[in-house]
């Protein structure tokens, strides 16, 4: 994958009529995208609830479990979905009402759908024509960037999910958007392409574009973005730089399953350790509650060796992102 072409100078729009609360990690100093008190309802279902945050140049990771409202937020930012209340501003304009704002936005949606019977080159050229891109080489250049130039004339019906995602990335980038919305863009990509895409998105952020990337995979977002916004059940659960989010997640209480022989001896040894909140014994299984999983991990081998206990298995019981996110909104 070759380097992306240099991006255009980013044209910040007029200041949106929304005050960004100072020092609130949900907001950035120079926003390109402002979400102000946005709620979105689909019938009785609340997809977003009173959400306020902003996004600026660079890559921002949008994290949340399935159904958190990430996709709805992204579609609201692009104008594809109207908000039930509140306001969205992109480059100083309302993406729903001002068609010129669409010239600033590129979207890679999560769903696999691509126009049937079209080739990646045809799709990229179509997008270029719609955006009146004068550079006739732009479609092929972006197809080369995402590694699809050699299959540019194959219809996308037979493409894998990863290839379709890359075709959509090229189609989104061909108009040189200043705001790039990427909804689970790494879905289906193989490890090599995943690494290439992550590098590409970081470079686009470094060029001064506002890149908003959603994922429910924490480590991917950590590789991509310095700033992270976490949504849970349509609400803002946390926002800030990725380290503070990770620390917040690391300090939560969690349970660790330990299989040991003899288990009761290890339970007695663990009960006296200050990192341990409680121990339950069930046969050769111990369920250990802790707020300092790192300390526990360091202490466990020493305690086991000292007590003459053999460890068979150590694994966290609630490491899913859903559990992490639930803890964040508690």
């Amino acid at each position: 994958m070759s380097m992306p072409p240099p991006g255009p100078p980013v044209a910040p729009g007029p200041t949106p009529p929304v005050a960004a609360p100072a020092l609130d990690p949900a907001f950035v100093a120079e926003p390109t995208v402002v979400v102000s008190g946005v709620s979105v309802f689909f019938g009785q279902k609340v997809a977003l609830s009173e959400l306020s945050c902003s996004f600026g140049p660079g890559v921002t990771g949008l994290l949340g479990p399935n159904g958190a409202g990430k996709t709805t937020l992204m579609r609201a930012v692009t104008g594809l979905v109207s908000v039930s209340s509140g306001q969205v501003w992109v480059a100083g304009g309302d993406p729903r009402k001002e068609r010129t704002v669409q010239g600033h936005i590129g979207l890679v949606p999560e769903d696999e759908a691509v126009p049937g019977g079209l080739t990646p080159r045809e799709l990229a050229r179509y997008r270029a024509a719609l955006h009146s891109v004068a550079d006739r080489e732009a479609p092929d250049r972006w197809l080369a960037v995402v590694g699809l130039l050699d299959v540019a004339d194959r219809v996308m019906d037979g493409f894998s999910k990863g290839m379709r995602q890359r075709a959509k990335v090229a189609a989104a980038l061909v108009s040189n958007p200043t705001v790039l919305i990427l909804d689970e863009p790494l879905n289906g990509a193989d490890p090599v392409q995943r690494g290439n895409l992550i590098r590409l998105f970081r470079q686009l952020g470094d060029q001064g574009r506002t890149v908003l990337v959603s994922s429910h995979v924490l480590y991917e977002v950590e590789r991509l973005a310095e700033r992270v916004v976490v949504l849970v059940r349509g609400r803002l659960a946390a926002a800030g730089d990725r380290r503070s989010i990770r620390d917040a997640m690391a300090d939560r209480p969690r349970r660790v399953l330990v299989r040991a022989d003899p288990a009761r001896v290890l339970a007695a040894a663990l009960a006296g350790h200050d990192a341990v909140g409680g121990v339950e014994v069930d046969g050769d299984r111990l369920t250990v509650a802790t707020r300092r999983a790192g300390d526990l991990a360091l202490a466990l081998p020493t305690l086991a060796r000292g007590a003459g206990v053999r460890l068979w298995e150590v694994r966290p019981l609630d490491e899913s992102l859903e559990a992490l996110f639930r803890e964040l909104v508690r």
Binding site: T78, A113, P115, L130, H131
Partner: peptide
């Protein structure tokens, strides 16, 4: 099918 956005997301009226 969810592909209209390829057209809708453009400066075209």
């Amino acid at each position: 099918s969810g592909t209209l956005h390829f057209t809708w997301l453009s400066p075209a009226s």
